[in-house]
């Protein structure tokens, strides 16, 4: 019987290595293609570090490829604003619904998951009139430069991240007893502000982190809305650069993928042995856990 088990395990290990090896090979080839393309001279004949050297030369980057600098800064700004607006909008609302308006739970959930059925490109079509109206008002209040700034795209990005953020926060809220916590705090004389800031938020730490992380990831990878509204974020800058200087854009593309991988890989070690999988997987699983 033990012999049989051992044989089974051996067979399984071989199967695992073959399958994972083959798929990783498929994943590796285009990535190596990027690396080799970016590490050759302009003619593509000999190995050369010229492209990487250019990328490290920040003053040169900002003068020669201004789009790249603007796009990068815009994307970082967008990520920050999206996370802040998302948290300010969702955490109090979801807590409040749980405490005082449980009848609205289904409605809020439906609205938050709605963007899953509305592809980004469809949202763009509907957002076009909204943004032309919004930009008009913003320019009226803040002047033409700030009014038509890329940063306002964050308002639309919040909608894109709603489903993912909702699930992450919902899993967090399920895990704690908000009602008891808030009643305890209230009976000790805390106002609603204190309850949110010093009781609910600290208890939701992991969920908030997870939601923010997903929001940052989505924002940094967003292309559709920015491109169709002709505003330059990191992805649009890469896309535009691809038309003029392919090597640099390939190098930036590879860097962005490697950076994202390093962050995700590092994240998989944070949070103890229980959560040994990626945040995305953890999110899906959290959703399925009973209340």
């Amino acid at each position: 019987m033990t012999g049989q088990r051992a044989a089974f395990r051996r067979k399984q290990a071989i199967m695992r290595r073959v399958v994972i090896g083959l798929v990783l090979l498929f994943f590796a080839v285009p990535l190596y293609g990027m690396f080799s393309d970016a590490t050759k001279d302009v003619a593509g004949k000999h190995w050369s570090l010229a492209t990487w050297r250019t990328l490290l030369d920040f003053p040169k980057i900002s003068t020669k490829y201004p789009d790249l600098k603007t796009g990068f800064l815009a994307s970082v700004g967008l990520a920050v604003v999206t996370v802040v607006v998302m948290l300010v909008l969702l955490v109090p609302t979801m807590t409040w619904v749980r405490l005082r308006l449980p009848g609205l739970t289904r409605t809020v959930e439906f609205i938050c998951l709605l963007p899953l059925t509305v592809p980004a490109i469809v949202l763009v079509v509907g957002l076009t009139p909204i943004y032309s109206w919004l930009t008009g008002w913003l320019q009226y209040f803040f002047g033409p430069t700030i009014g038509s700034s890329t940063i306002w795209l964050a308002l639309a990005y919040v909608v894109l991240v709603l489903p993912y953020a909702y699930r992450a926060l919902d899993a967090g809220l399920r895990a704690i007893d908000v009602r008891t916590l808030s009643e305890a705090a209230r009976s000790l004389g805390a106002g609603w502000g204190t309850v949110m800031w010093r009781v609910v938020l600290p208890n939701l730490r992991t969920a908030v982190l997870s939601a923010s992380f997903l929001a940052v990831a989505l924002t940094l990878g967003e292309f559709t809305i920015a491109n169709l509204f002709s505003r330059t974020n990191l992805q649009v800058a890469m896309y535009l650069l691809g038309k003029s200087d392919a090597q640099i854009s390939v190098a930036v593309g590879l860097l962005s993928l490697v950076f994202a991988f390093v962050v995700l890989f590092a994240m998989s070690f944070v949070g103890g042995a229980r959560s040994a999988t990626s945040p995305m997987t953890r999110l899906r699983r959290a959703k399925k856990e009973p209340a």
């Binding site: 691809g242 854009s249 593309g253 993928l257 994202a260």
Partner: peptide, 22 residues
Amino acid sequence: TSLCGVLAQFGGVALAFAFMAT
């Protein structure tokens, strides 16, 4: 899982470049 997370979510423009470069 980390690699798949990146490729599934960040794809977009960079993926197109990867295949063109290859």
